[in-house]
Design a protein around this nucleic acid. Structure first.
Lengths: 163, 163
DNA sequence: TCCTTTAGTTGTGTCAATGACATTATTATA
DNA sequence: TATAATAATGTCATTGACACAACTAAAGGA
């Protein structure tokens, strides 16, 4: 908490309705934040949703693509893959089965625990994951056409948001 | 790949390896654009994907929520709703049926074309759409915690991207 | 050793969504 | 007017996403 919260907690001295310059600034910032957030949603979810594009390009459903990209970082037990993807183990088994059938992944023994198996991408699997990332990483034209300063600013702010 | 690619592939006349200050600036901007785009995707698709939240809150699948929000702008023929949502007419019928069953929408005659029907939200439908928008509009804490200048910048840039 | 826990799999079922196709009402057109 | 096109709907098969129960094999503790 920062100390300023104190002043903002209620209507300050002599304020009608608690909307002094500070409050006004805060709510303006909040409004801008909401607008920006809605805008990003529109942009990413409606205008440039790449799910279908990647899925079509790789000839597999998007859940497989997600798994591929997770696994690109390195082999992990199926259990962990399930957790990271937010799906349950049985469904994760289905996904991994599919990837194995396609020759994109393989199950290897986990020396640390013989109950579990590590899911590891094959060479082709890594290539497919890279292809997926390539497709999804292409920014929309509107973004590429921004002034360099705007692009830098966006890059910087987004990095902050991800921290 | 052979080593000559360097000389042969780039822009021709007067370029030494195609990487003058201008080119360098462009590619730096492009790299930043890709980074920003990837970051926004991570942020919106993985960390703060509100689909499940809204769907749970409204007790309906996300496709219904999308339809609700589309219809909030005003009554449109089912055909148009289908196009805007990228689904086919039969499935759109199913969705509208569902909304009607819930008392959130109704089909009214289209004076312009008696073959078609306008899908219009009821008062409750409008309320539900508003609720959905409210939920989805709440920015993540990281965004609210940004400096006001960053928020303003983000808002401005996103607005540009949407133009 | 017995008992409990955990990782993975199999089996089953539900819901969401698409595509093919037929039907009916209503327009638009030759 | 006969005919073609269109809007909405209904039917059916299929695919994908995903959850839950039950089961097997392997750890690991008492």
């Amino acid at each position: 908490m920062d100390g300023r919260t104190r002043e903002g907690d209620g209507p300050a001295e002599g304020e009608r309705g608690g909307s002094g310059p500070y409050e006004a600034g805060r709510s303006a910032a909040r409004a801008a934040a909401v607008r920006a957030w809605q805008g990003m949603n529109t942009l990413l979810m409606e205008r440039h949703n790449r799910r279908k594009t990647v899925a079509d390009a790789l000839g597999m459903s998007f859940s497989r693509v997600r798994a591929l990209r997770r696994l690109a970082a390195g082999p992990i037990p199926l259990r962990e893959l399930a957790e990271r993807m937010g799906s349950d183990p049985p469904y994760t088994t289905v996904i991994v089965d599919d990837l194995v059938r396609r020759g994109l992944a393989e199950r290897v023994a986990n020396p640390a625990d013989r109950r579990s198996k590590l899911v590891r991408l094959t060479e082709e699997g890594r290539a497919a994951a890279a292809r997926a990332t390539d497709i999804m990483s292409v920014p929309p034209d509107a973004l590429l056409d921004l002034d360099p300063e705007d692009i830098e600013a966006l890059d910087r702010i987004v990095a902050k948001l991800l921290r």
